[in-house]
């Protein structure tokens, strides 16, 4: 996908590069909007993770896999894919220390318990989003890397 002579002309296309340069920040910002507003409106952790991964994949398609791998390295991806699970499980386990059940955020002693529930849902969504983004990107990397054997 990334090697071969006929694809280099596509990579050097100025329209593709300019549109990607303009669109990728907007896509990533939109993903963060979806992530934060997931509790109240349409959207959520999974959708935001998919949109984040789609932004990085668009970057990889127009600027090459190597440049994307130097920005979002495999080390960072494996860190993120476990960090999201850690955020989810940690937020879920936190009410256990205040006498609640697993994922019962209302028991966390903030100023008012309604806000505590809202913040708990947001933390869960952030964890899901990070993990989905990392796993989608790692699948894409594995599919588009040449196997060396």
């Amino acid at each position: 996908m990334m090697s071969g002579k006929e694809y280099t002309t596509f990579m050097d296309d100025i329209i593709v590069r300019t549109v990607t340069r303009l669109m990728v920040p907007l896509i990533l910002l939109w993903a963060l909007y979806v992530l934060i507003h997931g509790a109240g409106g349409p959207g959520g952790g999974f959708q935001a993770g998919c949109v984040l991964a789609a932004g990085f994949i668009l970057y990889a398609l127009s600027f090459g896999l190597e440049k994307t791998k130097s920005i979002m390295t495999i080390k960072w991806i494996s860190l993120f894919s476990s960090l999201g699970v850690l955020i989810y499980a940690g937020t879920g386990l936190l009410p256990l220390f205040f006498g609640g059940k697993y994922l019962e955020y209302g028991k966390i002693p903030l100023i008012n318990p309604i806000k505590a529930s809202e913040y708990g849902i947001e933390a869960i969504e952030i964890g899901v989003g990070i993990t989905v983004m990392a796993v989608m990107l790692s699948i894409f990397y594995d599919l588009s890397t040449e196997r060396e054997d």
Partner: peptide, 26 residues
């Protein structure tokens, strides 16, 4: 059902197409 539409647009039309094209390239 805007939630499902969102997932369909991001996964179905975006990511899975790229993955299937990568599979064809291999």
């Amino acid at each position: 059902s805007v939630d499902v539409a969102f997932t369909e647009a991001a996964v179905g039309a975006g990511v899975s197409t790229v993955m299937m094209i990568a599979a064809i390239a291999k």
